[in-house]
Deep mutational scan, measured.
Amino acid sequence: APRKVEMRRDPVLGFGFVAGSEKPVVVRSVTPGGPSEGKLIPGDQIVMINDEPVSAAPRERVIDLVRSCKESILLTVIQP
């Protein structure tokens, strides 16, 4: 079942996760003590960023979407 995860941007750590460059977009790592800790799990597949589906989106679009979130971000993720 999809999970909705909302995180506030940390001034130092950002959102505190690293996503892979393949499709679908998969969470590779979560920064300890960062905003994503306890919310995202490595292996989570990101299916939506805010209200935009990203399963088939180019990597550049995913990066732009994350960067455009100055304060908070809403991710919809699934464990494949």
Rank of each mutant, 00 (worst) to 15 (best):
Ala1Asp: 11
Ala1Lys: 06
Pro2Ala: 09
Pro2His: 15
Pro2Gln: 15
Arg3Lys: 12
Arg3Leu: 05
Arg3Asp: 02
Lys4Arg: 15
Lys4Asn: 05
Val5Asn: 02
Glu6Ala: 09
Glu6Gln: 12
Met7Ile: 15
Met7Thr: 04
Arg8Val: 12
Arg9Gly: 04
Arg9Phe: 12
Asp10Met: 05
Asp10Val: 05
Asp10Lys: 03
Asp10Tyr: 03
Pro11Ser: 07
Pro11Phe: 04
Val12Pro: 03
Val12Gly: 11
Val12Tyr: 10
Val12Glu: 10
Val12Lys: 14
Gly14Met: 04
Gly14Trp: 00
Gly16Leu: 00
Gly16Thr: 00
Phe17Leu: 04
Phe17Cys: 02
Phe17His: 01
Val18Asn: 08
Val18Ser: 08
Ala19Ser: 10
Ala19Cys: 14
Ala19Val: 14
Ala19Tyr: 09
Ser21Val: 05
Ser21Phe: 13
Ser21Gln: 09
Ser21Pro: 06
Glu22Tyr: 13
Glu22Phe: 11
Glu22Asn: 07
Lys23Glu: 11
Lys23Phe: 10
Val25His: 07
Val25Ala: 11
Val26Ser: 08
Val27Gln: 01
Val27Lys: 01
Arg28Trp: 08
Arg28Thr: 14
Arg28Gln: 15
Ser29Thr: 12
Val30Asp: 01
Val30Asn: 03
Val30Thr: 09
Thr31Ile: 06
Thr31Met: 10
Thr31Trp: 06
Pro32Leu: 09
Pro32Tyr: 07
Gly34Arg: 00
Gly34Tyr: 01
Ser36Lys: 00
Ser36Pro: 01
Ser36Asn: 02
Glu37Cys: 11
Glu37Leu: 05
Gly38Gln: 08
Lys39Val: 10
Lys39Leu: 14
Lys39His: 12
Lys39Ile: 14
Lys39Pro: 02
Lys39Ala: 09
Lys39Trp: 07
Leu40Glu: 00
Ile41His: 15
Pro42Trp: 03
Gly43Asn: 07
Asp44Ile: 00
Asp44Thr: 03
Gln45Arg: 12
Gln45Thr: 08
Ile46Thr: 08
Ile46Asn: 02
Val47Gln: 11
Val47Leu: 15
Val47Asp: 09
Met48Ile: 07
Ile49Asp: 01
Ile49Cys: 05
Ile49Arg: 01
Ile49Pro: 00
Asn50Ile: 02
Asn50Lys: 05
Asn50Tyr: 06
Asp51Asn: 11
Glu52Leu: 12
Glu52Ala: 10
Pro53Met: 13
Pro53Phe: 07
Val54Met: 08
Ser55Thr: 06
Ala57Tyr: 15
Ala57Ile: 10
Ala57Trp: 15
Ala57Gly: 05
Pro58Gly: 13
Arg59Tyr: 15
Arg59Ala: 12
Arg59Trp: 13
Glu60Asp: 11
Glu60Ile: 05
Arg61Val: 11
Arg61His: 13
Arg61Thr: 12
Val62Leu: 06
Ile63Ala: 14
Asp64His: 11
Asp64Met: 05
Asp64Asn: 10
Val66Met: 14
Val66Trp: 03
Arg67Thr: 13
Arg67Glu: 14
Arg67Phe: 08
Arg67Tyr: 10
Ser68Pro: 03
Ser68Ile: 05
Ser68Val: 06
Ser68Ala: 12
Cys69Asn: 10
Lys70Thr: 08
Ser72Asp: 13
Ile73Arg: 02
Ile73Asp: 03
Leu74Asp: 15
Leu74Val: 15
Val77Met: 03
Val77Asp: 02
Val77Ala: 05
Ile78Thr: 15
Ile78Phe: 11
Ile78Gln: 15
Ile78Val: 14
Ile78Cys: 12
Gln79Pro: 13
Gln79His: 12
Gln79Gly: 15
Gln79Leu: 06
Gln79Ile: 03
Pro80Lys: 07
Pro80Ala: 09
